[in-house]
Nucleic acid binder design. Structure first.
Lengths: 399, 399
DNA sequence: ACTCTAATTAATTCAGTCAATGAATCAAAA
DNA sequence: TTTTGATTCATTGACTGAATTAATTAGAGT
């Protein structure tokens, strides 16, 4: 009912401690003096708060800094080894585990295959075993488990509601939490990438942006006011099935004209097959078995028809994204994923399509940012989500 | 840089005062006791805070309430006459002015025509005159001016960046603020409707929703976490030109396949003309001059071809909205505007189109809400915006 | 029927608490 | 000696809880 905590001394303390921690995390190594200036807290107050935080091992003092004259400042550094985070990425046939410090740097990584036909219970067993093994092997405490999973995720209730890729329905992760005795945070995989982008700096430049991941499907992680936006039931960003062509191609989802139907590997494969059948493309004619790689090679060998095919994919993507840009007016679009392996041909066409939108006249231009999406990015995003959670401002009423 | 205020006694006080005011605004008449229970503040603290707020005329004591036993509670009511708000709606050829109390109830209303060819300076003169006249005539203070205007609005800088309807570019309202000596808050008109919806209760049910206004153009007011979302440069919600058909009809904006090209009065008129030319529709054949009204009458008379035309408009709208639903996952879509005069035919088709989207399997259904959009709604929204601003939690660092 | 008392709930008073604050002081360096 | 960083300490002020006062009802006694 009440959205904010009431004001009392505890709130002041929590708030200012968070403020000081934030300063050291963002600007450290930093002196007490500078913290006082940046936060506009009194110097004596900073001394007092830093003392208690030093006792709790949030920081370490790392000698003195430089100064032209007078006493040298004592520099405080964030202790990224106060505890650690375990991040998981659940894929179709394997689970990848990463161990991260509080600066979201990877300390260890491992992965286990599983049989998709196994029961959820068995897979939970597998996860809990690995997690508990890591926890037992480390003297430091584990502050949380971050899990990136494909599908419709209900973050607040720790549930995967529906995941076509995993073929899971209504899977409740609170049971995993019970087994590992550490807080478990679940997140949609596209959102994990958005967390990763927020972590290393795009969030400073842009208040609002979207991260598009193009792989088996097309997904979007949405950032509003530097926070992940999940929608009313946790499924915002499912842009694979927005319609770019009324009465267009039939999509596997049953609709016609979906974005995915016009951009997926399946679409590229079908169109390439068509070209091959019509014997229009010299490069494709030489290939025996069409694969995504051989199609790309055909384009790279200079085959214009195949290059045009990729350009069309770029246009299709651009049309879909233009709708989103008009509706959402993001500061940037971040793009990544294996679906962009032919980015050489796709991106210029996409850029061209996105050139004019409702805001193109505005002085602040829409930025299009390409990123490499390797395995580690997803894990890092999942870890970053937990760390963000750990250090978020303590303003809201604890439930 | 720092997003939140530092914690000190002033913050506690500001926060708790806001908390108490909020209680009385939402649940009043209410006793000190109940405020203490709801906010979890101490009873003595509530007495103390209420005392100071009574002195500042935020509340009035309105006698005692009921109780089975023991001392009767003294009820506090929000004083909606502490000050008032002036709201403006700027239209193509007229400006409508409304005076509102702090419960967003209209106290007075007037409108003045202006010549669209007049200079902005002259129109500002007109506005300032009316506003200053009202301010001079009232003994109470005016707390703010809320202005709803069509086009791309930069709220933070009090600027209309670009308004095709008014044919205004880069109009700076800080000059108006100087003339009236009262804070001026500018807002896009679709957002004003969203404010109105937030005000009377949709915001309690839904965290995230969108308000679609269908008039000369199609616009959307977007609500995220009970707050208006404006996008990176203030132009979120410009959905008139999202593309629903690749290589479709040419739109006046230069693009092909825009939502507006498939839903506007212009589209309906063109299609009806086409029907008339082909002499396919008996009802339209009898009409001399085609108008939006005569077309609607043709449908109402039972002409199936015209009814189908409206149904197609509904489908087109539905297709556009489905994309938005998949991307944004709102809890509700609120629809209104004169473009829906044929809602009898449009809405069923729209509903059908929206029936299956990515979340349709989720237990929480997407709600579609129709509202009447009369003149007063826009004014009320503009007033509600100012009042919301006036009473918002004082958590963020004052800039 | 009237008065008085106990019980109950609402509101206020008041001394105590504690985190921030600013002035004074200490520490370290040029 | 001067300058800058860090600490100490008395003061401030908003919340807090216990005690008190205010207002009301039920019920007992006359």
């Amino acid at each position: 009912m009440d959205r904010f905590r009431r004001g009392n001394k505890q709130l002041i303390k929590d708030l200012n401690e968070a403020l000081v921690i934030d300063q050291v995390r963002r600007f450290g190594p930093i002196s007490r003096k500078d913290i006082a200036i940046n936060t506009s807290l009194g110097a004596s107050t900073v001394t007092y708060i830093v003392d208690s935080l030093l006792k709790e091992k949030y920081f370490t003092e790392i000698g003195s800094g430089i100064s032209d004259y007078g006493r040298k400042p004592v520099l405080l550094q964030f202790n990224q080894r106060k505890s650690y985070i375990i991040a998981l990425k659940i894929e179709e046939k394997q689970i990848i585990y990463g161990k991260f410090d509080l600066n979201a740097r990877m300390l260890a990584k491992i992965s286990h295959n599983f049989n998709p036909k196994d029961s959820v219970k068995a897979i939970f067993r597998l996860m809990a075993d690995q997690i508990n093994q890591w926890i037992a092997a480390d003297t430091l405490p584990c502050s949380g488990i971050g899990i990136a999973a494909p599908g419709l995720v209900d973050q607040a209730n720790q549930k995967i509601i529906h995941s076509p890729i995993l073929e899971w329905e209504e899977v409740d992760f609170s049971k995993l939490e019970e087994e590992v005795q550490v807080p478990v945070y679940l997140e949609n995989d596209a959102n994990a990438i958005a967390h990763a982008e927020l972590w290393d700096g795009r969030g400073e430049q842009f208040q609002n942006f979207i991260c598009i991941t193009i792989g088996a499907g097309v997904g979007a992680g949405i950032v509003v006011k530097n926070e992940i936006y999940r929608g009313e039931v946790g499924g915002a960003g499912e842009i694979g099935h927005i319609i770019i062509q009324r009465d267009g191609l039939l999509c596997y989802c049953g609709q016609r004209g979906c974005l995915e139907a016009y951009t997926s590997d399946r679409f590229i494969m079908a169109e390439a097959l068509h070209l091959k059948e019509l014997k229009l493309s010299p490069a494709l004619n030489q290939v025996e078995q069409l694969t995504m790689n051989s199609i790309l090679q055909a384009a790279d060998s200079g085959d214009e028809l195949v290059q045009e095919l990729y350009q069309r994919v770029g246009e299709n993507l651009g049309i879909g994204l233009k709708s989103i840009v008009n509706f959402f007016n993001p500061g940037a679009i971040v793009l990544g994923g294996e679906g962009l392996r032919a980015k050489k041909y796709i991106i210029p066409a996409l850029r061209k399509e996105l050139e004019d939108h409702f805001f193109s006249r505005h002085s602040k231009k829409l930025e299009i940012i390409l990123i490499d999406l390797e395995e580690n990015q997803w894990l890092m995003g999942a870890a970053a989500m937990v760390i963000t959670q750990l250090f978020k401002e303590p303003l809201y009423r604890e439930v």
